[in-house]
Nucleic acid binder design. Structure first.
Length: 649
RNA sequence: GGCGGCGUAGCUCAGUUGGUCAGAGCAUGCGGUUCAUACCCGCAGUGUCGGUGGUUCGAAUCCACCCGCCGCUACCA
């Protein structure tokens, strides 16, 4: 289906980010993971291309710019600098940073939509509905929750306008067919099942343009409209490698080998994106990988509550390699992960300090003490099984990375490291030295040094500083880590006669308690976004008049009966009294939070003059008020008994 | 409600097509060692492999049902 089995160059993309705030550790997780993939492929000697960028044409970003009193162009340029600096600090070596406001990208988007238009996949229609600025998405009537976005719980904007639609529905069969025939197309498997399920249930055409917005890419045939931001954003995967402005480069790179994305945007990448590409006559990417979310201290990452980690501050505090290693080694890739001080300190100490760092420390120390710092010539056939062990590790590393099981890479390397530590204890070079067993001593010291060299090479996709430092302490050219390539994983690469050079501990041990209390690196501290005196207060959002508010009739009601609605998980059917003698029936989505029997007799606040509706075939006359924080939901009511029907002002 | 998945040592998780599959790492306890970053090495565990039935000579591994949790989805006025 137009997907080459394996091309020469390896093209990886990550999600582009909204620059409406500073990069956080969740962003970093994805970027570092992709970086490890790319570094591994480079190690294998494969040409690679790593694309990242910022998603600038969103209302979020426009708003953030206005809040800072900047025009969007200037704001986005500044933020691109902030993001790029963060990736630099984290050692993320991307090949191109494509901003959606880049003229080359804008040209590419226009070319793509024109292509779809020319091929008859776009038609004029009228969009009625809701739009969530935070999601950058149109929300169907079914999804609207009390006038709020189901995801962000923020007020929606009512939109009714003529705009342009993409015939997504006509590509359903083709996309479904592709997903079924290419099991690797969507990974992990759970994501593929979700997408298949979605596709089976059918697709509706989607709006691809918006009117009345000056910020965005104008449609070539209707400049009064701009391209819907998701279409715009997805197109960076094409524009980033030359689509629309460097055809030769584009042919060389496209299709992508891996789109690395968060699991929340699977739908766009596995349904809409393939359909767009099919419609444009372009080949589909080989794999879309939806990685898990990174929680912080066991809780959802949240900027508003400050439950986040600034990856830049963290890297500066504990080292680039510390954060990279923790991100990559701690969590089985694909699952949700957790970023917590305790587990970080534990992982760092046990793997990096005690095992890897200490092996280097003792290895180099022994060479200095017993061999004047010179790597000895080992006797023939004295590798004591390490040649084979190293080959196994190399294969495990390759298997892990090719299979996108990133966390298995460090695990395989640590296993070789542990073997070497064990080996030192069993061979006891200090005993060999005392007994004058010179040949055995030569063999053991060489083997340890050679394992260290191989570990440095193998770790180079994950760590960016330690491998060079290991090379340096082994007396090798630090820059050679990047040049040795896959052959560097072969046993025997270390030349006898090399003079080692003892240095500071590779990874100094951390005090877990101190780490746990280090709010500076673990808090929501974001040095690049320190609000200045000139920063305007955040936009409080549109206001309503007192008159408008008074139109809402809020009253206290007493629940007299409650029962579950058959066939619905979240719905309860409630009978209430407002003290007017007329029982009132309300259907409410609180079944997950309250048991029916616990509700009877309670007093709650209801919207009494809400237009009645029928939910799941059950009449509902009003709505309960409840506070929602995260997953918790608490009904509101008077803090003491009042007469049913009492007005709430 | 539909679809998908998960529930295995204190913690995080491996366990291919049923027969050394009851494991690894971390944590814990005891012992050893001194080249090394109070490191490293050895030993020791504990587990009713969520529950109940069933298929089988034999199931953590297959089937049914149940309990709990998660994801997508529907309902959530």
């Amino acid at each position: 289906m137009g997907v080459p089995e394996q091309r020469e160059d390896f093209y990886v993309t990550v999600a582009i980010d909204y620059p409406n705030g500073d990069p956080h550790v969740g962003h970093a997780y994805e970027k570092v993971a992709a970086d490890a993939l790319v570094r591994f492929q480079r190690l294998r000697g494969r040409p690679t291309f790593y694309l990242m960028g910022n998603d600038e044409h969103s209302q979020n970003v426009l708003r953030a710019a206005k809040q800072r009193g900047q025009d969007p162009e200037g704001y986005c340029a500044d933020m691109a600098g902030v993001f790029r600096e963060a990736w630099d600090v984290l050692g993320v070596g991307y090949d191109r940073f494509m901003r959606t406001n880049d003229p080359r990208h804008i040209a590419a988007v226009q070319r793509l939509v024109q292509e779809l238009h020319d091929r008859g996949h776009v038609y004029a229609g009228t969009y009625h509905g809701w739009y969530c600025v935070s999601c950058e998405a149109f929300i169907t009537d079914k999804e609207v929750n009390d006038g709020l976005c189901p995801v962000h719980h923020r007020p929606l904007e009512r939109v009714e306008e003529a705009n342009w639609f993409f015939r997504l529905s006509s590509f359903r069969d083709a996309v479904l067919e592709h997903v079924r025939r290419h099991p690797d197309f969507i990974q992990p498997e759970a994501r593929r099942h979700e997408v298949e399920s979605l596709l089976r249930s059918g697709l509706e055409d989607v709006s691809i343009s918006r009117a009345k917005t000056e910020w965005g890419v104008p449609l070539p045939w209707d400049p009064d409209q701009v391209v819907y931001v998701w279409f715009d954003a997805l197109t960076t995967y094409l524009s980033g490698v030359g689509y629309g402005w460097d055809e030769a480069a584009f042919r060389r790179h496209w299709p992508a080998d891996v789109h690395l994305i968060g699991k929340d945007i699977t739908r766009f990448h596995c349904v809409i994106w393939p359909a767009m590409l099919l419609a444009a006559g372009l080949p589909l990417p080989r794999t879309v990988y939806g990685h898990g979310f990174l929680n912080v201290r066991g809780e959802k990452l949240s900027k508003t509550t400050g439950n986040t980690v600034d990856p830049v501050a963290f890297a500066r505090r504990y080292g680039v390699d510390a954060i990279r290693y923790y991100l990559l080694a701690e969590t089985p890739f694909g699952q949700d992960g957790n970023f917590a001080p305790e587990s970080f300190a534990k992982r760092y100490n046990s793997d990096l300090a005690n095992d890897l760092g200490n092996l280097l420390s003792r290895g180099v120390a022994m060479l200095e003490r017993f061999r004047e710092g010179i790597v000895p010539q080992p006797p023939a056939d004295s590798d004591d099984g390490f040649r084979e062990a190293a080959a196994t590790t190399r294969d495990q590393l390759a298997g892990a990375m090719e299979g996108l099981r990133l966390h298995e890479g460090p695990a395989a390397l640590l296993s070789l490291c542990a073997r070497a530590n064990r080996y030192v204890d069993r061979q006891a070079p200090w005993e060999l030295a005392r007994r004058g067993e010179s040949e055995r001593l030569d063999a053991v010291l060489y083997n340890v040094a050679e394992v260290l060299r191989i570990l440095a090479v193998g770790m180079s996709p994950f760590l960016v500083q330690a491998p060079e430092e290991i090379f340096r302490q082994l007396g090798l050219d630090p820059g050679a880590v990047r040049d040795v390539g896959w052959a560097g994983m072969e046993w025997g690469g270390l030349g006898p006669g090399t003079r080692v050079c003892r240095g500071a501990p590779l990874f100094g041990r951390l005090d877990p308690e101190a780490v746990a209390q280090d709010a500076g690196s673990f808090g929501g501290h974001t040095p690049t976004a320190v609000p200045s005196a000139s920063t305007p207060a955040p936009d409080p959002g549109p206001t309503i008049s007192l008159e408008e508010f008074r139109r809402t009739e809020l009253r206290v009601a007493t629940i007299q009966a409650a029962e579950r609605v058959a066939g619905a998980d979240r719905l309860l059917r409630l009978q209430l009294t407002l003290g007017d003698g007329t029982p009132r029936q309300i259907v409410s989505g609180i079944a997950a939070h309250y048991r029916p029997e616990d509700l009877v007799g309670r007093q709650v606040v209801v919207v009494a003059n809400l237009e009645p509706a029928t939910i799941r075939g059950v009449r509902s006359e009003g709505m309960l008020l409840a506070a929602k924080s995260g997953k918790d939901l608490r009904l509101l009511g008077p803090d003491g008994p009042v007469e049913p029907g009492a007005e709430v002002r």
